[in-house]
Measured scan of single mutants.
Amino acid sequence: WEITFERNGKRITVRTTDHRLLELFEKLWRNGADERELERLAEEINR
């Protein structure tokens, strides 16, 4: 799966075969987690 999240013109794409990681990322994104931390998390998930 691949999903791109966008907020205030900032886009972060997450790619993984584990839908649970996408759900976790989406919850953090929707709850306003720090964008720098989300970028780092996305990099780890995308590996």
Rank of each mutant, 00 (worst) to 15 (best):
W1E: 07
W1L: 10
E2S: 01
E2K: 01
E2T: 02
I3Q: 12
I3V: 14
T4M: 09
F5W: 05
E6T: 05
R7M: 13
R7D: 03
R7P: 02
R7K: 14
R7L: 14
N8H: 08
G9Q: 03
G9P: 00
G9M: 03
G9R: 01
G9A: 02
K10I: 14
K10G: 03
K10M: 14
K10Y: 06
R11D: 03
R11T: 13
R11Y: 12
I12G: 00
I12W: 06
I12T: 03
I12A: 01
I12H: 04
T13D: 02
T13L: 06
T13F: 04
T13I: 11
T13S: 07
T13P: 01
V14N: 00
V14A: 01
R15W: 03
R15M: 05
T16N: 05
T16G: 11
T16S: 11
T16Y: 05
T17E: 09
T17W: 04
D18I: 04
D18M: 04
D18F: 02
D18G: 02
H19S: 11
H19F: 14
H19N: 10
H19D: 07
R20I: 12
R20S: 12
R20C: 07
R20A: 14
R20T: 14
R20E: 13
L21R: 03
L21K: 08
L21F: 07
L21V: 08
L22P: 00
L22M: 11
E23T: 08
E23R: 07
E23P: 02
E23Q: 08
E23A: 11
L24N: 06
L24W: 14
L24I: 12
L24C: 10
L24K: 12
L24Q: 11
F25N: 00
F25E: 00
F25W: 04
F25M: 06
E26I: 13
E26Q: 05
E26K: 06
E26R: 04
E26G: 02
E26W: 09
K27Y: 13
K27Q: 15
L28M: 14
L28D: 03
L28I: 10
W29S: 05
W29D: 04
R30F: 14
R30K: 13
N31R: 04
N31G: 13
N31I: 04
N31F: 03
G32D: 05
A33C: 12
A33H: 10
A33F: 09
D34C: 06
D34N: 10
D34G: 10
D34K: 03
E35R: 03
E35F: 15
R36H: 15
E37N: 04
E37Q: 11
E37G: 04
E37P: 01
E37V: 14
E37R: 06
L38Q: 01
E39D: 08
E39H: 09
E39Q: 11
E39W: 04
R40L: 13
R40Q: 12
L41Y: 06
L41W: 08
A42I: 10
A42C: 07
A42W: 08
E43F: 02
E43Y: 02
E43C: 06
E43D: 13
E44I: 13
I45P: 01
I45N: 02
I45S: 02
I45G: 02
N46C: 07
N46I: 10
N46K: 06
N46D: 05
R47D: 06
R47A: 14
R47P: 03
R47K: 14
